[in-house]
Amino acid sequence: MQDAATAHGLTIEIRERPKANSLAEAAELLGILPSGIVKTLVVKRADDTYLFALIPGGRSISWPKLRALVGVNKLRLPEPELALAATGYERGTIVPIGSSTEWPIFADESIVGRRIAMGAGSHGYSLFVEADDLIAAYGATVADISVPETPRD
């Protein structure tokens, strides 16, 4: 992971983090707002290629917005084994940095200008990086691709 970050000119910080039972708990453990935790979601296209969607905590993918941006009619979250095969990372640890394949990245515009926490490639760790540096290093597309999560009862 560090080698991949260095190869892209990125400065990252990896911190050990105890298991959290919620987004709010994870944010509290890291000393940041929940929106500062960014999920890296692997999204499968109909042609069996993938992309990464970077979505901040408290928000979820807007499928209509992402499909329109990508220019396709069908996108979906793959099964865990397909996500692992596509990235080399298990769900819950996925990050574009060091992925076994450098899939295109689509970042929600709300992460711009922020220091963010992400998966770090293995359970029990979080990776911190400047979102703008990550976006620039990987040529990510920045757009409005999320909606507020619906509260669960």
Rank of each mutant, 00 (worst) to 15 (best):
M118P: 05
V72S: 14
S62W: 06
P80C: 05
T87A: 10
L69S: 06
P96S: 13
A68W: 15
R91L: 14
G119A: 06
V72E: 12
G57A: 08
E79R: 10
D108Q: 03
G92K: 10
N73A: 15
S110A: 10
S99F: 00
L77Q: 11
M118C: 11
R59V: 03
A86W: 00
R91A: 15
L82I: 04
T93M: 03
P78N: 05
T93E: 04
S60F: 15
P80V: 03
L69C: 03
E79P: 07
R115G: 09
P78H: 11
G57F: 02
L69R: 00
S100L: 15
I55S: 02
I97T: 10
A68C: 09
T101R: 14
R67S: 12
R114T: 11
P80G: 07
I111E: 01
R67K: 14
A68M: 13
K65S: 04
W63Q: 13
S60M: 14
L84Y: 10
I94C: 09
G58S: 11
Y89L: 13
G119C: 08
L66M: 15
T101D: 15
R59Y: 02
N73R: 13
P56A: 04
E102N: 05
A85S: 10
R76C: 11
S100M: 15
P96L: 11
F106Y: 14
R91Y: 02
V70L: 09
L69I: 04
R115S: 14
S62E: 07
A68G: 01
M118H: 03
G58Q: 01
P96N: 12
R76P: 05
L75I: 02
L84T: 00
I61P: 05
P104I: 02
L77E: 14
V70C: 00
L77V: 04
T93R: 05
R59L: 08
G88D: 13
T93C: 12
W103P: 01
A83W: 08
G58W: 09
E81Y: 05
M118W: 01
I55G: 02
G57N: 03
V112F: 00
P104G: 08
L82C: 01
L66T: 07
V70Q: 12
I97V: 12
G119M: 03
R91H: 12
T101K: 10
A117S: 10
V112L: 04
W103M: 04
L77A: 04
G58E: 07
L69T: 02
T101E: 14
T93N: 09
A86G: 12
E102C: 14
K74C: 07
V95D: 14
S100A: 15
G88C: 03
V72A: 10
I116R: 01
P56G: 02
T87C: 09
R67G: 04
R76T: 06
R114C: 14
M118E: 12
Y89H: 09
P96I: 13
S110E: 08
G58C: 13
R114I: 07
R91V: 13
R67H: 09
A68I: 12
E79W: 10
P96H: 09
G119L: 04
T101A: 11
I105M: 04
Y89W: 10
I94P: 02
L77M: 15
L66W: 04
G98R: 06
P80H: 04
A107D: 00
I105A: 08
G98V: 04
E81R: 03
L66D: 05
E109P: 01
S100Y: 00
L77K: 07
P56V: 09
V112M: 00
S62V: 07
R67T: 15
E109K: 00
S99M: 11
G58H: 01
P78A: 10
